[in-house]
C-alpha cells in the first residue's frame, strides 16, 4: 500500500462512528443475565432507531405474517442473534443515510448494498444455510469502504468516477492508482475498527479477491451477490461495470446455474421494500 493509502486509513476516525446506542444494546445482548426486555428498554430510549427497527422487522426482509407493532415483540419474533444484526444494520445505515455525496447518491449506494444483501441472503437460503441473515448483513456491508473514500477524498473519487465513466479502467483499479488503497481494504479496516465480527470484515475485504483461497461462504456468496446486484443495476456504489466472476468463489458457493433465476427474481421482488424500510420515513 502506498503512503497515501495508509494516511487515508488513519483518517477513518474522522468519520461518524456507530451510535452509542449500538454499543449499549450489544452490551445488553452479551450480558449473561441479559434479556430481550433489557435490550428493548435500551433501544426505546432512541425513538428514531426503534421505529426504524420495527419498520425493518416488518419489511419483506423477514416476511413475518403478522405485523409486529412493539419492539419487545419484534425482538422475540426475530431472535437474539438476529436482533444484534438488525441493530447493527439500522445503526450503520442511519449513521450515513443523510450525508450527501457526489455523483453517486447515498440512496443509490444503499440500494446497491441492500440488493447485494438480499441476493446474498437468497443464495444462502437456496443453499439451505442456517443464519441466512448473516449473509444479508455481509452483503449489506460489503462496499462500506466506498463511503470513507467518498467522504474523505471527494475530489479524487470524483475524478476516479469520471475516469471510470470514460471507460479508462474499472473503479477499483482507479482507487489503487489514485488513492493507493481500495474500498475493500478500507471497508475491512473500518469494520475492524468498529469491532464488527470478523465474518463481515472478510466479506468487505475480500469480495473482489480472485485468488484461490479458503474463503468463508459468506464472502463467496457476497461476491456472487455483488455481481447479481450490479447486473440488475439496482443502485450502484460507483461502478458501472459488472465485476469479474471468480471461479473459486463460484465453486465455493456450490451454486448451480439454475439457482440463479430464483435468486434474481427474489432480489428484484424484495429489494424495493427493504430499501424503503431502511431509508424512508
Amino acid at each position: 500500500m502506498q503512503p497515501s493509502g495508509e494516511r487515508l486509513l488513519e483518517r477513518l476516525s474522522e468519520l461518524p462512528s456507530l451510535p452509542a446506542i449500538y454499543h449499549q444494546a450489544r452490551d445488553a445482548l452479551e450480558r449473561p443475565d441479559g434479556s430481550l426486555d433489557a435490550v428493548a428498554s435500551v433501544l426505546e430510549t432512541d425513538t428514531a432507531l426503534s421505529a426504524r427497527i420495527l419498520r425493518v422487522a416488518n419489511s419483506a426482509l423477514y416476511g413475518l405474517i403478522a405485523k409486529v407493532d412493539s419492539l419487545p415483540r419484534a425482538l422475540t419474533m426475530i431472535g437474539t442473534e438476529e436482533v444484534h444484526r438488525i441493530i447493527l444494520a439500522t445503526s450503520v445505515v442511519s449513521v450515513f443515510r443523510d450525508i450527501p455525496l457526489g455523483a453517486v447518491s447515498m440512496r443509490s449506494f444503499w440500494e446497491h448494498s441492500i440488493a447485494t444483501g438480499v441476493a446474498s441472503r437468497a443464495i444462502a437460503r437456496r443453499l439451505g444455510q442456517t443464519g441466512a441473515e448473516r449473509f444479508y448483513l455481509a452483503g449489506l456491508l460489503h462496499d462500506i469502504g466506498r463511503l470513507p473514500l467518498y467522504l474523505l477524498e471527494p475530489e479524487t473519487m470524483g475524478q476516479a468516477l469520471q475516469a471510470h465513466r470514460e471507460h479508462r479502467a474499472d473503479l477499483q483499479t482507479l482507487e489503487t492508482q489514485m488513492l493507493g488503497t481500495t474500498h475493500t481494504e478500507v471497508g475491512a479496516a473500518l469494520l475492524t475498527q468498529w469491532q464488527i465480527p470478523a465474518v463481515y470484515c472478510e466479506a468487505a475485504g475480500r469480495h473482489h479477491d480472485l485468488g484461490e483461497d479458503d474463503y468463508r461462504l459468506e464472502t463467496s456468496a457476497t461476491h456472487v451477490a455483488d455481481i447479481i446486484a450490479n447486473s440488475l443495476r439496482i443502485g450502484t456504489s460507483g461502478t458501472r461495470a459488472v465485476p469479474v466472476l471468480s471461479e473459486t468463489h463460484w465453486r465455493r458457493t456450490g451454486l448451480e446455474v439454475d439457482d440463479l433465476r430464483p435468486v434474481v427474481e427474489l432480489t428484484l421482488r424484495t429489494t424495493q421494500d427493504v430499501v424503503s424500510a431502511f431509508l424512508e420515513l
Binding site: G102, A103, V104, S105, S108, E111, G158, L161, Q162, R165, L232, R233, I234, G235, T236, L268, Q272
Partner: peptide, 15 residues
C-alpha cells in the same frame, strides 16, 4: 455532472 450521473443511474434502474 454529478447530478447527471445520478439521474442516469436511477433512470436505468430496473424499478
Amino acid at each position: 455532472r454529478s447530478l447527471a450521473h445520478r439521474l442516469e443511474t436511477t433512470l436505468r434502474s430496473p424499478y
